[in-house]
Design a protein around this nucleic acid. Structure first.
Length: 245
DNA sequence: TGCCATGTTAAACT
DNA sequence: GAGTTTAACATGGC
């Protein structure tokens, strides 16, 4: 579920509840439910992999982590691991197995909204400046850095690197300028392809790198390793993806 | 059954 | 303290 594009889909699914009054709540989230019970859901926002439910006095931040799920207008699911259920006059939004926290204060000041690859505010020049400030970072780590590419997860990382033909262990400083432009551009482009394919339920059919065994370009076997500080799996072709140094 | 995974955080280390 | 590594959490699929 939970890379940036999936959270955009989640937002769209619950958008009908924006501006609506909460009439009930459920769940075992470790938060003060009285802060928003019977309140109006003023706005729904996303930043990368996080969803914000904005109320007059506070915001609820929901992060699906690795296994989080949700259901909309469906209360037939067992309440096992139900963290937060929001019940409206017409419908409901239930969140399972996720992180639920309360955020006080102005959301706009808490996050760099220009870092969200799915956002209209996405600023590639800003991402580039952040990359320049971390020259010794492996590109596989840089892509996963939520402060630079908010919303990018391990699948997007692998697919972007394959698309632009860059080896995951390449250091940011070694990437030629035009290639860096391409990388930053594709981080957003691929995320929107992800969104399209996910909506059409054909997402995994389009994987060219993630979980792949053979390179579709050259037919040679893929490498699989967990380099960098993040130690997340990278799938790559050493024939097609260049290691710049 | 055991292992692994679209993620993050906090504790435990050096 | 800093920076780094490990553990923890939780669910479903193979």
């Amino acid at each position: 579920m939970p890379e940036g594009p999936s959270i955009v889909i989640l937002k769209q699914a619950i958008l009908p509840f924006e501006g609506k009054l909460l009439i009930g709540t459920r769940g075992n989230a470790d938060i003060d439910f009285s802060a928003f019970e019977k309140e109006k859901l003023v706005a729904i926002r996303t930043w990368g992999k996080q969803l914000f439910l904005c109320f007059k006095k506070m915001n609820i931040r929901i992060h699906l982590l690795m296994f989080g799920t949700y259901s909309v207008n469906d209360q037939t699911r067992p309440d096992k691991s139900l963290r937060l259920g929001l019940i409206f006059k017409k419908g409901s939004a239930y969140f399972y197995t996720c992180s639920v926290t309360i955020l006080e204060g102005e959301l706009n000041t808490l996050y760099d909204w220009k870092a969200d690859v799915m956002s209209d505010l996405w600023d590639p020049a800003r991402a580039r400046r952040k990359l320049k400030a971390r020259p010794e970072t492996m590109v596989c780590d840089a892509l996963m850095d939520q402060q630079i590419f908010s919303g990018v997860g391990n699948i997007i990382k692998n697919e972007v690197l394959y698309r632009v033909r860059v080896h995951p262990e390449t250091l940011v400083a070694a990437i030629p300028p035009r290639k860096l432009t391409e990388l930053i551009t594709e981080a957003r482009n691929y995320s929107f392809d992800f969104l399209t394919w996910k909506k059409a339920s054909v997402f995994s059919k389009h994987w060219l790198a993630y979980n792949q065994k053979v390179c579709k370009r050259c037919n040679l076997p893929f490498f699989r390793a967990a380099p960098g500080k993040a130690k997340r799996n990278s799938f790559y072709c050493t024939n097609c993806q260049i290691f710049y140094f």
